[in-house]
Amino acid sequence: METEIKLRVDGQEREVTVDTRTTVLDALRERLGITSPKKGCDHGQCGSCTVLLDGRRATTCLALAVAHDGAEIVTAEGLGTDGELHPVQQAFVDHDALQCGYCTPGQVCSAVGVLREAAQGWPSVVTEVGAEGDIAPARLDHEEIAERMSGNLCRCGAYVNIVPAVAAAAEAEGAGR
């Protein structure tokens, strides 16, 4: 069964006809020709397809397009402004936090999500919990970043560069705040 939906992708209104079985990922890649989100597994196991979906990072291979009519999507391609890379992307370039680049757009979107989540005080599984059950505001040290970025597999093994890249972006953002 086919149906028409609207998506706002990287700042542009798009109308697209989708099969009710179409994932957001396939709607973007195969129906709209937006290929910055990658398909690594189609099963929510690798993170390659990560975008910011209504402001939060999400694996688009696990999201059905019909369920996201009207959604706001930002892919790696739309992160930057005026032809400039987003600070997270620039940090990835500076730290050579990639090799083949296939996981990279997902890593970058995920990292932007991590910075937002940490800024909002969201804990991760490695965040210290105080005696009262109080949660210290998440400081993005190596352990926190590695944990929070572990939904994004990188078979090229760029992790040792990804963590410092995200840390540098976090620091720059903190400095700017």
């Binding site: 195969e30 290929t35 992307q89 990639l98 680049g101 990279t104």
Partner: peptide
């Protein structure tokens, strides 16, 4: 700096399945 780093962080380096073709089937 890696020559293709900028294209890759923005997801603009085309991999095999991503080359635009007219009227494909699957």
């Amino acid at each position: 700096e890696r020559a293709d780093a900028r294209a890759k962080v923005a997801g603009q380096a085309p991999y095999a399945f991503e080359h635009p073709v007219e009227n494909p089937c699957y």
